[in-house]
């Protein structure tokens, strides 16, 4: 018993080191974001002495973040909602229902999941332009939905396939049709998985630069991440301001994570141990 307790402590040491390695770079970024340009050039690694909060103010105004935040929120919320809705429908059908083409459908999901965006970049933008969705929220939402949908369907199918058939069959006996089973059983039961996927897809949409740059070419329509990356183009030598901008973009994500972390990391597990 004693030996086991000691070995647990021994294991905890590298784990603590890893935790430090996980936090340290972020502390580091904050440190640099607080330096003024001169201090950054002269002493990049040291702890800041200037505490130049102005970087954050500059980043906010120069990157037009007020406006771009709104764009990001609209696009992210819409994309995630559509992705979750469609993925839970398709995931349920693929995992639980027998229909001709089920396997083909699954292969389409698996195949499209492996297409890096760069592969279809140019034809995709051409298509967007042809249907007139360049520089529109709808265009960017379609782009995100089509990019992140396959993985979410895969995940949901995988999740739903673990829900015993007896449950859905019982619901059928109660007089539900397939839509009823989906709406009354699968959606509520899928909540933990939908929450995880929701957070993950929100991260992808929020952090994306490439797709947003291509679809939103007009300055007014940009997302906040693009606004900040343009900051780098505009002030190529001002790394602290750039990092301050990036931190401002990431901040809401960290807040959301801290709020939902129990659901993400623990909540997913809790439901099952009871079962």
């Amino acid at each position: 018993m004693r030996a086991e307790r000691i070995s647990r402590w021994v294991i905890a040491i590298p784990m603590a080191l890893l935790a430090i390695a996980t936090i340290y770079p972020m502390v580091y970024a904050v440190n640099i974001a607080l330096k003024d340009r001169r201090e950054y050039v002269l002493d990049r690694l040291g702890v800041t002495t200037t505490f130049n909060i102005q970087n954050f103010v500059d980043a906010w105004t120069q990157a037009n973040m007020g406006r771009y935040y709104l764009n990001s929120i609209i696009v992210t919320v819409a994309s995630v909602a559509i992705i979750l809705l469609l993925a839970s429908m398709a995931g349920y059908a693929i995992a639980h229902l027998t229909f001709r083409g089920n396997r083909v459908m699954f292969l389409v999901i698996l195949g499209t999941m492996m297409i890096p965006f760069q592969v279809i970049m140019v034809p995709f933008i051409k298509l967007m332009s042809d249907i007139g969705t360049i520089n529109t929220y709808a265009g960017l939402i379609i782009a995100y939905v089509s990019q992140f949908l396959p993985f979410t369907v895969f995940f949901m199918a995988s999740f739903y396939s673990g829900i015993p058939k007896e449950i859905t069959e019982a619901a059928r006996v109660d007089g539900n049709n397939l839509w009823g089973v989906w709406g009354r059983i699968m959606l509520p039961l899928g909540k933990p998985a939908l929450l995880s996927m929701g957070i993950l897809n929100a991260l992808f949409c929020w952090n994306d630069i490439l797709i947003a740059l291509l679809v939103m070419q007009s300055p007014d329509q940009r997302t906040v991440m693009v606004g900040v990356s343009a900051l780098r183009g505009q002030y190529p030598d001002n790394v602290p301001t750039y990092l301050a901008g990036v931190l401002l973009v990431v901040l809401p994500l960290v807040v959301v994570y801290l709020i939902f972390q129990r659901q993400i990391t623990a909540g997913v597990t809790a439901g099952a141990t009871k079962g």
Binding site: S129, G132, I134, N135, T136, S218, Q221
Partner: peptide, 10 residues
């Protein structure tokens, strides 16, 4: 709304 309000730069 967003779609209607913007001028496609292309």
């Amino acid at each position: 709304c967003g779609g209607a309000a913007t001028t496609p730069s292309g």
